[in-house]
Design a binder for these strands. Structure first.
Lengths: 359, 359
DNA sequence: CTGTTAGCGCATTCAT
DNA sequence: ATGAATGCGCTAACAG
């Protein structure tokens, strides 16, 4: 594995060395060198030449030129991953899963963060098209903005027409391959969990209404409540940004204006962390004695909050992996029906939930 | 598969449209089309032609071919970012900062996670070289493994010889441009903070010894103690993985074997979260009444732990931004001295620290 | 099994 | 200001 430091010779650094040079150095043709170094499958090169090429490449410190390869074979080894925010643990987990799978397939991942700026998703998708990414994972939630959605759909169609593959994490467009997160079911699980603990006055701290993820989770909660013979009063729902600060503010408003609530479902864990802080520090309400709180996602730090956060667990890393696998799997030669990988949600009850206070 | 020319009609979708086609559609030469669409600086194209090319591109839904451009101009618009783990909030924050800056410069970010597997860093650096990334940010900590370090240095040298730029986040190699994190100083700040609160028996929950980041932080703590007239007994230090579980196990061992300790410095927040859990759940030791705990990094969830975590704050996002800026800044035509951007650390005292218990 | 040849899509001199 | 001609490094037929 060590390298024979036989320096002081012609060939300088591994710099700008081309396949052509490797071929010459090995005394073979360009084609042969290409076959042994990048040969796809058919290893039809004699033992002797193969060896010569390999050592020549090693000696010259040859490094293949991916852009050139991409140009020649019109397909690259890079996949794109578009998220809202890498610093958000939800996306961090998804990215980790996708990257782990990417590594197995020796793919490079080009990542783009929209920082929740609408329009940036489209821009990055174009950028990824320009890079000739082989596929793209749309990890962020879809939107109810029809115009934006239409433009994005058009861009996606173009990308697919070019042979690019696209998969979404979370329902977004029924036409697209998607790794379906149990958002609706999860919302229901949370509500039922609270209900079973005895809660009858349940409220929701929601995220931006235009996010599909949000509306799915909210609908799940609403439907569950209805099936339980109750209903979700719009006044028992408060909206905030999908951030810690947003969760804190919304939770404080909710409990201030609807003090009879005993159970609160917060639509994601990051917001829940803020909600816990707000209830405790701003309102002095004890969780879970006075109010029970259920989060959503089960990000890594959820169990470390105090009280530890009861939450709806989503298999985030698995989602990332599944998405990447979907990207590579059986070629879509069967453009028949878009594929869909449904992932389950579980309710994890921890310290932030308990029976409602006596009254 | 793909059929060149002899297309019956002007290509339909935005698919496979080439600059050549745009040029023809606009009735100009390839060169002119290139100048208006990708023209770097010199905008020497007549108003009329410019307009024609632009609308042709728009009409045909032209999307430039980055690999082809990279090949032709032998430089790309992608920068690489190598981290240990994207799901770790420390790297998440750095990545967010880098990506924000990348966006400003219209750069695409290719990200790679080594998942702390030694050797993978080298492999990914090669991959990034193959992609002809314009620059690479090495965000993970360096190692004391001399062999690995040497091989990496060689690879870096090759990359730079090819015109690639490299910057490290955290000291690693004095020859390289680096965004210096105040690891040593931070370790000192933490110890002094504890000392000032009255602690005289201070221990450390450390990370893998081979990580430079770890040894720097540890040295900082050790030096501060010494300057305070005390010393860090090796027996007061326990090592664990740079993970929550690692922190928990190490903290439990430390306090079990050294029960007289009243203050503990945990070398990163993720480990600290585990330490807090271990002290509380495994040993039943109250923080901060019985033991004070100080973490390192100040990741987003640090303030949400209970007790909220006192920690050494590092400007993570700023580091990511600084690294990316360093990559682009004044060309290194002055290979004189590698540049170094020092970033400060602050001690943030929260709920996990207090005066030591009376005795 | 190995060498020849013709592009892939675009940036760039070099003329005009 | 604009066009024609070259070549970037590599893959993929297509011969031998």
């Amino acid at each position: 594995m060590a390298n024979p430091r036989s320096r002081t010779r012609p060939a300088r650094t591994g710099s700008g060395v081309t396949l052509q040079q490797v071929a010459e150095h090995a005394g073979v043709s360009l084609a042969t060198a290409s076959r042994v170094l990048h040969g796809s499958g058919t290893r039809t090169v004699g033992e002797e030449l193969r060896r010569r090429v390999e050592s020549a490449a090693e000696e010259l410190r040859y490094i293949s030129n991916a852009p050139a390869q991409a140009l020649a074979r019109s397909t690259s080894a890079v996949v794109g991953l578009i998220v809202h925010d890498v610093a958000d643990p939800y996306f961090g987990a998804i990215a980790a899963g996708a990257m782990r799978a990417a590594r197995e397939h020796r793919l490079m991942v080009m990542i783009a963060a929209t920082f929740r700026e609408p329009g940036l998703e489209l821009e990055y998708l174009r950028g990824l098209r320009a890079q000739r990414a082989r596929a793209v994972i749309l990890a962020g939630s879809g939107t109810t903005d029809a115009a934006a959605t239409a433009r994005l759909a058009e861009e996606i169609a173009g990308f697919e027409a070019d042979g690019g593959r696209v998969v979404c994490i979370g329902e977004r467009d029924p036409e697209l391959d998607t790794v379906a997160m149990a958002n609706h079911a999860g919302g229901g699980l949370a509500v039922r969990g609270l209900w079973e603990l005895g809660h009858r006055r349940i409220g929701v701290v929601s995220g931006p209404e235009e996010l599909l993820t949000v509306s799915q989770r909210l609908d799940g909660a609403r439907d569950a409540l209805r099936s339980l013979g109750a209903r979700l009063d719009p006044a028992d729902v408060r909206t905030g940004d999908f951030t810690r600060a947003g969760g804190r503010a919304a939770a404080v408003r909710l409990l201030t204006e609807r003090p009879d609530l005993t159970g609160v479902l917060v639509l994601n864990d990051v917001m829940a962390a803020g909600a816990l802080a707000g209830l405790r520090d701003d309102l002095g309400l004890s969780v879970p004695d006075r109010v029970s709180v259920v989060g959503f996602d089960d990000v890594p730090f959820a169990a470390d909050l105090r009280p530890s956060l009861s939450t709806v667990r989503l298999p985030l890393e698995a989602a990332g992996e599944a998405a990447l696998r979907l990207l590579l799997d059986p070629a879509p030669d069967t453009p028949a029906s878009p594929r869909r990988i449904p992932l389950d949600a579980d309710l994890v009850l921890r310290g932030s939930t308990a029976a409602p206070p006596e009254r």
